[in-house]
Design a protein around this nucleic acid. Structure first.
Ligand code: FES
Ligand code: FES
Lengths: 155, 155
DNA sequence: ACATAACCGGACCGTCGCAGTCCTGATTAG
DNA sequence: CTAATCAGGACTGCGACGGTCCGGTTATGT
């Protein structure tokens, strides 16, 4: 599937929201704005902060701010901040993992070109490109009301 | 991490192995050649067959054969055959999943360009490109001897 | 015709990473 | 000093993935 984690998905939404004109936004505020549970948004913000994509101000009246403009944030960097470095195979080059049995590993560095191609593709697209896509009428989400417990259908 | 499944990794090895000059190779034979358990190799072969990347001949003296030359098999097709269609987000366009609550989904189709870029990158690289990478001295792997229980170090 | 070899299509289960929540500090405004 | 906010973990439930196995089918060869 080559799916990326859902947290990364939220990260993009959060970052786009951070570019909404305001200078400083709090975690609960963002959560209310995009309709995602606050703890989850907080987690995303932390990872983003650790990745250097947003800057944080602690203490009362603190909050988060974009570290760079959306145009300067490639989507690959967001993925790296959330899901760790991009590595298709177990061992590409950032061989932080194991693989002592190199001799009998038939895929020794074989995925490197593929990995590199993807990384290049992800670096060519910025968050600004994704922002253009669309931002539907989501910003008027009720932040206090219970969103209806949308357990809708169990599949 | 954007990691692909280990089965896909094996698939590439198997496919490269299938291009080893022989006309027809059996599942146990391939397993012995690349040093991977037979049931796992069989599973990979089945997925590959279902994906139309290899053709199979049943019955005694049956086996597998490449459906197309390695040059004509983009790596993206292998990934699609093993891990299903490439879809970064939950909903790209093959919205086989759910997402009835479109109204409050802030990522509505936002990942499409990224997804497309990756797909293009994966289509540009063929298995022949990966075969060039290297095939170390793996083909002489002992298929009967126990490989030594390499539990080595627990890190 | 029979036995054999190989593929086919599942079911099955253990493991592991992910999604989501929560709690205890550290920091700063007022 | 108190309140608000971020920081950094620990914790748990769940679902996908990795790997194995089994009965069934097809074809070869004697
Ligand atoms: S998995 Fe690391 S070298 Fe093979
Ligand atoms: S997850 Fe499918 S539309 Fe949002």
């Amino acid at each position: 599937m080559l799916r990326l984690s859902k947290l990364t998905d939220y990260a993009v939404v959060v970052l786009v929201r951070l570019d909404a004109g305001l200078e400083l936004q709090t975690s609960p505020g963002i959560a209310a704005a995009i309709g995602v549970p606050e703890p989850t948004v907080a987690k995303v913000l932390k990872s983003l902060s650790a990745g250097g994509l947003v800057t944080s101000l602690r203490g009362a009246r603190g909050g988060y701010r974009l570290a760079r403009a959306l145009e300067d944030i490639p989507v690959g960097e967001v993925i790296a901040a959330m899901d760790g470095p991009i590595a298709l195979a177990a061992c590409v080059d950032g061989s932080a993992t194991e693989c002592e049995s190199l001799a009998l590993c038939p895929v020794r560095g074989r995925w490197d070109p593929v990995n590199d191609a993807i990384q290049r593709a992800l670096s060519a697209i910025s968050l600004a490109d994704m922002r253009e896509a669309a931002i539907p009428a989501v910003f008027r989400v009720p932040h206090t009301a219970e969103l209806g417990r949308s357990d809708a259908s169990r599949q």
